[in-house]
């Protein structure tokens, strides 16, 4: 029956044709160079539109000042970013405090290059829903009143949205088992923490103060429903970490050049101003591996660093 074979013949022809066309398009479309590409990535806690602008501008800036191809690789999961860094899929990553420590422990020789001016003294805030009846806390030992409350963290690997708040709770006698439901909830992000506390699903939440402030400034928070009850003592957080093999792949002294390029970003140039503004900083300042020893100790204590 020839009628039956026709669709098969047609499908074969179609796919072969398509494959051929794609191969032509593919050959002409993709740049095939063997030059090494500097792959930068970030633990994202920004909206994607902002991230794309942020890393687009930063890639251009670094590409120009370092004279290499720079590519931004989006990663949306903390553990994935750490693994990608270890495996060499990312060369230069904007890590949070905890994830940076995890990444360096798994990638011996990796180096902390820089942090923002605000990262040296970073803070988290505890926010509470008005209906919870919780009053602002004046000294840390009053954190015990959070026992038996429904509490939300952000992402499980977040330094400001989980690790440090949990640490300060523990220091003041509140273990995770003391919370309502036998443990904290995880909203997934700082913005989502605000949403679940504001809605009343959770009574208390802990998040990055920088994100809280920008939400307040943009009017995305209803002050009648949710308010800050406590601010943590300062700790170090976000930082740039570079893989150990950059000098080997891009030439002697390349890691230092990257550090210099980051530190020399100033608001005086148009692109520099844009990048710094998007990062929410005045400038980048130098940072060392040792700056994060305290975070590592806290991470070990809470079982997030093994």
């Amino acid at each position: 029956m020839p009628g039956r074979q026709r669709p098969v013949v047609m499908a074969t022809g179609l796919t072969t044709g398509l494959a051929f066309a794609m191969s032509l398009a593919g050959c002409s479309g993709a740049p095939s160079t063997n030059d090494p590409v500097l792959k930068i990535g970030a633990i994202p806690d920004q909206n994607p539109e902002k991230l794309n602008r942020l890393y687009g501008s930063l890639s251009d800036e670094l590409s120009e000042s370092l004279d290499v191809d720079v590519r931004y690789v989006p990663v949306s999961n903390y553990a994935a970013a750490v693994s990608a860094f270890r495996s060499g899929s990312l060369d230069l990553v904007w890590f949070g405090g905890l994830t940076g420590v995890q990444a360096r422990l798994q990638t011996p020789g990796a180096r902390v290059l820089a942090q923002r001016d605000i990262d040296a003294k970073f803070t988290s805030v505890f926010i509470a829903n008005g209906a919870s009846g919780l009053r602002p806390i004046t000294s840390a030992d009053q954190l015990v009143q959070l026992k038996g409350r429904r509490l939300a963290f952000g992402s499980e690997s977040s330094t400001s949205g989980r690790l440090m708040p949990q640490y300060f709770l523990g220091e003041n006698g509140v273990t995770m088992g003391d919370l309502a439901g036998g443990g904290p909830g995880f909203s997934g992000s700082h913005d989502a923490t605000i949403a679940v506390v504001q809605s009343g699903t959770y009574e208390v939440g802990a998040l990055n103060e920088q994100v809280w402030r920008s939400n307040v400034d943009e009017g995305r928070v209803d002050p009648s429903k949710v308010a800050v009850i406590w601010r943590t003592p300062p700790y170090v957080d976000y930082h740039w970490v570079a893989r150990p093999d950059l000098d080997e792949r891009f030439g002697e002294g390349f890691t230092d050049r990257v550090q210099k390029a980051l530190l020399s970003l100033t608001p005086s140039t148009e692109r520099g101003a844009l990048v710094l503004d998007l990062f929410g900083a005045e400038s980048f300042i130098p940072a060392q591996n040792e700056d994060y020893n305290k975070i590592e100790a806290v991470g070990r204590q809470l079982g997030k660093v093994r």
Partner: peptide, 10 residues
């Protein structure tokens, strides 16, 4: 990945 980033920032 895009959807998650949008969701995280609501």
């Amino acid at each position: 990945t895009e959807l998650m980033l949008s969701l995280q920032s609501l």
